[in-house]
Amino acid sequence: MAQTESPQPILSIRRLKKHFGHIEVLHAIDLDVQEGEVVAIIGASGSGKSTLLRCVNWLESPTDGEICFRGTLVSAANATTVRREIGMVFQRFNLFPHLSAVDNITLAPQRVLGQSGKESLTAALELLERVHLSDKAYSFPGELSGGQQQRLAIARALAMRPSLMLFDEPTSALDPELVGEVLEVMRSLAQEGRTMLVATHEMGFARDVADRVIFLEAGGIVEQGPPEQVLVNPRQERTREFLARVLDR
């Protein structure tokens, strides 16, 4: 779990650039993520955290640069295949409102992996138990609280058995009292050794769970390192300013 220099990172990003029109949202990002590593990305709104994550699974196509996932260069041609192994959890959940909790989870395994109804259902019920939603198996997203919805969304992503999980500010849309239950699920995922890339405003989560914290500002990496370094004794002035602003609130 610790940050050892293994020769083959699961995710390798080189000189990643993303423009929206004339605005450069990301410039020349380099980032390696090792198997089993939990990386927290912090930074102000608009610093490019979400865009970085969305480039990894090609929801946004990069303007320039390379993304290698498990040794494969990701491109428009193979993005659909690569996405099967990269789970994503969205800020606004994006659950399928016309499907029950179980159907939300089994849809992709059935339609993408060709799993049988029984096989995917068994797996779905196990996943629901993991995120403490066994009693909501046949509820619809509209009947669930925000925290329950996000936990369901995590279960849905896990159902594809991904080797990398992307979390795009998973607690930002939640009422404060519901944040804890989602973070608790994420913490347990980290503990079982999953590889996670988490864009977050939760400094406590980053400090306790992440192996590495990356501070992003204006589309570039300002500072990165173990949480105790970046969050407690930042080397960069800009990091200090950001933390002062965030922790002040």
Binding site: N94, A108, V112
Partner: peptide, 23 residues
């Protein structure tokens, strides 16, 4: 339909057709 629906479907590995058809 909210664009997040298509994104969620694609992020799960569905191609455009499957996302249209099922989501």
């Amino acid at each position: 339909i909210d664009s997040g629906q298509m994104e969620a479907a694609r992020a799960l590995g569905m191609d455009y057709r499957a996302a249209m058809r099922w989501v």
